[in-house]
């Protein structure tokens, strides 16, 4: 499900089936590396959208968790932990964070949910067919990780 009224109506009726939250972690900046940061975020958004399409009935895709690249790790970790607590208190059983930002990888051990890190692949100059192939491949890797957690 997505963060839309239409999907939330289904969620409210079928809560017990929707036990997995996916949160994209998206860095922000306006400094000189802005382009690569944007590209990272764009890639992650494409992948999580596809993941949501595959697992619509069980996965709730949340609006992204955003942070300036200058925010220190401790604060970010604290904030994402708060999000996670909130979700778990409301019945979510599996929490996944999806990101291309390597910073999280270093702090992975302090995260209460599961970090799914993807290498960022700039899709903007790729031809359509190749692009689709990459998105399908990356998504299916994430799908396997979710399925493994579920069983």
């Amino acid at each position: 499900m997505k963060w839309t009224v239409k999907d939330v109506e289904v969620y409210l009726q079928e809560k017990e089936y929707v036990d997995t939250a996916v949160i994209p972690l998206i860095p922000l900046t306006l400094e000189k590396n802005v382009k690569s940061i944007v590209s990272m975020g764009e890639f992650v958004q494409i992948i999580v959208n596809e993941l949501e399409r595959q697992f619509k009935g069980r996965v709730f895709l949340f609006p992204p968790f955003t942070y300036f690249t200058s925010e220190n790790m401790e604060e970010k970790t604290k904030r994402i932990a708060d999000w996670t607590d909130e979700l778990i208190a409301n019945g979510m059983k599996h929490i996944f964070y999806v990101t291309s930002d390597t910073e999280w990888k270093a702090g992975e051990a302090n995260l209460p949910g599961t970090l799914l890190w993807l290498p960022s692949i700039p899709l903007e100059h790729m031809d359509e067919k190749y692009k689709q192939q990459i998105v399908t491949d990356q998504t299916s890797q994430l799908m396997n990780l979710l399925i493994a957690k579920w069983s």
Binding site: Y17, V18, R53, F55, K56, G57
Partner: peptide, 9 residues
């Protein structure tokens, strides 16, 4: 491929 339960693929 859309599952008629809650819409997974």
């Amino acid at each position: 491929p859309v599952c008629k339960h809650l819409g997974c693929t």
